[in-house]
């Protein structure tokens, strides 16, 4: 890959993921300055990669997460979720889904990642997620509240869930 192609890729992915990654880093380290440093570091590493990155989005997220967690560990600021909370989380999951999770990853990391994705959703989509998973409303009820058709609610939910699922898979959360 030529250097100019690499530069084009860098510019493209920077424009696309500058904001999400900044938010994600901030959500982990809770420090804007540190978040900026971390994002800068991630893009620097991306630009120095000799080999072609097959899934740049997943690579950028995964690298940023690892850097952020390392930063927290260095500064003794990593707060672990209580084991009980993790157990609650696992109970809420479908039995078949439990096997899909990579057991060696920290559960809170996955949840934070999902929260981050939800936080980036448009308001109407985030609202549908809230109605469905917080208030446990049916498609019909959501459609009535949002003014959307039932099939449209189903379509939007499918779109959000499918996108999130692929992101998580790309970042190694799902085998």
């Amino acid at each position: 890959m030529s250097q100019s192609t690499k530069d084009q890729l860098l510019v493209g992915w920077f424009e696309k993921l500058e904001k999400p990654l900044m938010i994600y880093a901030y959500q982990i380290v809770h420090d804007r300055e540190e978040a900026e440093d971390l994002v800068q570091e991630v893009f620097l590493r991306f630009s120095k990669q000799e080999n072609e990155i097959l899934e740049p989005r997943a690579w950028l997220y995964k690298t940023l997460r690892n850097l952020s967690i390392s930063f927290l560990r260095k500064n003794n600021r990593l707060q672990r979720t209580a084991d009980e909370d993790q157990m609650d989380f696992l109970h809420t999951m479908n039995r078949s889904a439990e096997n899909c999770l990579v057991s060696n990853l920290e559960k809170n990391e996955v949840i934070d990642r999902v929260k981050h994705s939800i936080s980036l959703l448009p308001k109407d989509s985030a609202h549908i997620i809230h109605l469905k998973f917080n208030q446990r409303k049916s498609y019909q009820e959501i459609a009535q509240e949002t003014g959307l058709s039932v099939s449209n609610v189903g379509y939007k939910l499918h779109h959000i869930i499918k996108g999130l699922s692929e992101e998580l898979k790309g970042e190694g959360f799902f085998k």
């Binding site: 904001k19 938010i23 901030y26 959500q27 609650d88 989380f89 809420t92 999951m93 479908n94 078949s96 889904a97 439990e98 096997n99 899909c100 999770l101 996955v110 949840i111 999902v114 929260k115 981050h116 939800i118 936080s119 980036l120 308001k123 985030a126 997620i129 809230h130 998973f133 917080n134 869930i161 499918k162 999130l164 699922s165 998580l168 898979k169 799902f174």
Partner: peptide, 23 residues
């Protein structure tokens, strides 16, 4: 189905304590 079920479980777990939207 297994993957989608896992994602649904994570969404359910995440929606309990949502983080403020920063976008």
């Amino acid at each position: 189905k297994r993957m989608l079920a896992g994602t649904l479980g994570l969404l359910e777990a995440s929606s309990k304590d949502p983080i403020p939207a920063l976008a």
